[in-house]
Amino acid sequence: MFVAVTLLMAAIGCEVGATAVLPRTQSFHHVGWSVVVVAGYVIATWLMAIVVKTLPLGVTYATWAGLGTVAVVGISWLSGEELSLVKVLAVGAIVGGVIALNVGSTHAA
């Protein structure tokens, strides 16, 4: 299970990295950054395919999407994007949902 969680974190990192540099592709007109983005998404998806052999799909995807969203919001804020109270509350709801799914999955079996 440790390996699966580690690969999940790597998948999240690849997806977040690709998303963070997406604006640099200039709508996919900049070839170099476009390759980085596509490679990041491909690697993230490949790692997810490995992870779901061990971890439940629903929990895995919720964790990937939730933590990825939180990380991208954080990166966007560090890059100068405004972070309103509504965004902070929404991120809190996402984190709470991911935690609830993970806790719920450990008690379901």
Rank of each mutant, 00 (worst) to 15 (best):
A108P: 08
A62K: 05
L47Q: 06
V51W: 00
Y41R: 09
I75R: 08
V72W: 07
E82C: 00
G74H: 09
A44K: 11
S27T: 08
I94N: 01
P23I: 09
A100W: 14
G13D: 13
V36L: 14
T19W: 11
L57D: 02
G58S: 14
V3N: 06
M1A: 03
A65L: 02
S84K: 06
G66R: 10
H29Y: 13
G13W: 14
C14D: 00
T25N: 13
G40N: 13
I94V: 01
Y61P: 07
V73Y: 03
S76Y: 02
V21T: 06
L67S: 03
H107L: 15
G17H: 02
G104W: 07
V52E: 08
G17Q: 01
V72L: 12
V91F: 01
L89G: 08
T19N: 09
V98E: 01
L47R: 05
H30R: 12
P23C: 09
L8C: 04
A109M: 09
R24Y: 12
A65D: 01
G96W: 11
S34L: 10
Q26V: 15
I94M: 01
Y41Q: 06
A18E: 04
H29G: 15
I43W: 03
K53R: 15
A108D: 14
V5Y: 14
V38F: 09
I99K: 09
N102H: 09
S105T: 06
V103M: 01
N102W: 09
T25M: 13
V73C: 02
S27A: 15
V86D: 05
K87H: 12
V3F: 03
G68E: 02
G13L: 15
V98I: 04
V103I: 03
H30G: 02
W77E: 06
E81V: 10
